[in-house]
Simulated scan of single mutants.
Amino acid sequence: MPTLTPTSRRQFLTLLGISAAAVSCGRATAGGASAQTKTLKYQGWAGQVTLPELAEDLGFLGDVRLEWIGNTISGPQDIQSAATGQTDFGGAFNGAVVKLAANKAPIKSVISYYGSDEHAYSGYYVLEDSPIRSARDLLGRKVGMNTLGAHAEAMLDLYLQRHGISHGDSGKVERLALPPVNTEQSLRQRQIEVAVLSGILRDKALAAGGIRPLFTDHQLLGAFSAGTYVMTDRFLKRNPDTARAFVTGVAKAIEWSRTTPREQVVARMTTIVKKRGRNEDTVTLKYWKSFGVAETGGRITDRQFQPWIDWLGERGDIDKDRVDATGLYTNDFNAYGEKGGS
């Protein structure tokens, strides 16, 4: 190998640098604005099938794939993970979305994914022999829920308010965060006096007997969409086609679940859980009845956020005059019902 002179060495390094830069620029062009991610990182829920998971299994996401990075039991934690880029989307109660957005998180809600109807609702349950019969009976009692500052606590506050309990007295109700799979057991072992139960875990507990409802969110508000999936503004700007495929696919899954016999939906979910091989119990899936989304295709409106803007403002958690419901969401990526999107 010939020896390089100082001059030829500099020329060689210069040429090497130019070549590296050219390769780098070529990759940037190929992988920049024109190349959108086709893999979405997300968190799941143990023993359950989320709408995106259902959409993927049904082929509604097209060439977009999901990458499971673990499970969560908290909506607020899930959307915080999305806001910080640990995941590409996350879902939570709309009040939690309002709070995160009010704290300047650059996120947008893109589709509703759960709600309350006659089949899907959150109930506040006590033991059959419990002395708790009214809102005032809750003072000094322990209420177990999946997370604080979200859906369960909002409904509890609303129930107390509607039954004449002052803001000061409502603070006497002790709210405890518990894993959903342990909440029923904690109630039956009398570690808490009230358990917030929803979905398949609620129906499983009811089938076992020995508990009764104090109230439900459906009784309070009727049918309503309660939570949305969020993505960051940056993700939506860089990956509009992927976002559109994801949102429209989830919308299709919502409508598929409405129009397909329940037994077939349950069978599909059971197959999904078994295929993913996470050592999960599929028994509770047989109690599934509905995702509870009120609007066709999960489209979002102001009314899904304004009540929680007001609630958080009254609690002093946000300055509600600085939060505009319309700016919290977009339906631009939901093509369900449009030509070619249904």
Rank of each mutant, 00 (worst) to 15 (best):
P106T: 07
L148H: 01
P106D: 14
R299C: 06
F246R: 00
L51Y: 07
E338H: 07
G144K: 04
V64M: 02
R212W: 04
A335N: 08
A28Q: 09
R188L: 12
T72E: 02
A92E: 14
D233A: 10
L206T: 06
S166V: 03
L139C: 08
L221V: 09
I254N: 07
N71L: 03
R10N: 02
G292A: 10
S225Q: 13
R278Q: 14
D317G: 00
G298C: 14
P307K: 09
T271F: 01
A33H: 05
R268P: 01
L54H: 09
S225A: 15
A325E: 13
F333D: 02
R202V: 02
P106A: 11
M231D: 03
D57F: 03
G90K: 00
A55T: 10
I69Y: 03
M231G: 08
E153D: 10
G222L: 10
L58T: 10
D302V: 12
A253G: 10
Q48R: 11
A20T: 12
E184R: 13
L221E: 14
S170E: 14
G316R: 07
K172N: 03
A226N: 13
G149S: 01
A82K: 00
L139F: 06
P52F: 06
F235P: 02
L58G: 01
T87Y: 00
G123R: 11
D203F: 09
A22R: 02
Y287G: 06
K339V: 10
E263W: 00
E295V: 13
I107G: 04
N146D: 00
L178S: 11
P6N: 08
L176V: 15
M1H: 14
T248G: 04
I79M: 02
T147G: 00
S8N: 11
W256D: 09
S34A: 15
A102M: 01
T284W: 07
T50D: 08
V323R: 11
W288T: 03
N94H: 13
S122H: 14
I111E: 01
G26I: 01
S8F: 06
A195S: 12
D302E: 13
V196K: 06
T248A: 07
R303I: 11
S134P: 11
K339T: 09
Y125K: 10
D129V: 05
G209E: 01
D217S: 08
G337H: 06
S34R: 06
Q48D: 10
Y121E: 08
L58H: 11
G149Q: 03
I165V: 15
H218A: 04
G171M: 10
K38N: 07
K320H: 15
K99H: 08
E280A: 08
V323G: 12
L15P: 00
D241G: 00
L220G: 12
